[in-house]
Nucleic acid binder design. Structure first.
Lengths: 110, 110
DNA sequence: TAAGGTACTTACCAGAACGTATGTATTGAA
DNA sequence: TTCAATACATACGTTCTGGTAAGTACCTTA
């Protein structure tokens, strides 16, 4: 996302935070439990490593996810939802439901 | 939006429909009442005419907005929400609220 | 000694998204 | 006869997103 426009509603800011192709699904995967980088990679095989970290970093910068490094023998990093992230996830719920119904409808129409 | 991936949740399909920079705000403007093309142009001065029709056409193709032409002396075209569009707008409500709070918080932080 | 797992980083590039500018058809008003 | 208003259409160029491929540093296991 690029432009910072004076939006008349909250959709603008929200889209700047979860816009793009992957952020919403990443956040979704973090909803149930914290995940390691490698776990996310396996859970979302279609996203490249580059995109995965890039999006995680942006989500971190926006206060949506928390990153914790464990200084262990094989390095370990865990990503988890912040409170803000959880509230965003909740706000995405109705939209996800709508998308489900829409996809079903569109699928049935064919 | 380009890729048609098998998403694990409804966010994917939803984003394919209201993704992009303008669709959500356009839909928002149609919520209260139907609007003419020129009205939308005036209401959303930042969007170019090209983008406006392009997005309206895509929303129409997805069954989100309805387009009605009145064969009058100066041509008149009205765009309105379909039922599906209204349900999408409703699903966007919580996200818009979240965005409002987020923007307020971010604004206050500076 | 080489291979493999961890979590990244970097360079390069194609294609999509978006913007600007201009053109079109119709009619009525000046 | 020229201008303005309607609702677009089209060409062209830039900017941004996302993808591929390769490399880094550390340690463990075979």
């Amino acid at each position: 996302m690029k432009a910072k426009k004076p939006y008349n509603c909250g959709i603008g800011p929200a889209f700047e935070v979860i816009g793009g192709k992957w952020k919403a699904v990443i956040l979704w995967e973090l909803h149930a439990q914290p995940r390691r980088f490698g776990e996310l990679k396996r859970l979302l095989p279609d996203i490249s490593e580059k995109m995965l970290i890039q999006q995680l970093r942006e989500l971190e910068a926006d206060g949506i996810v928390h990153r914790e490094v464990f200084h262990e023998v094989p390095p370990r990093v865990e990503y988890s939802e912040t409170k803000l992230g959880a509230s965003l996830n909740a706000a995405l719920g109705p939209l996800a439901d709508w998308g489900d119904r829409y996809a079903k409808r569109a699928g049935a129409a064919r």
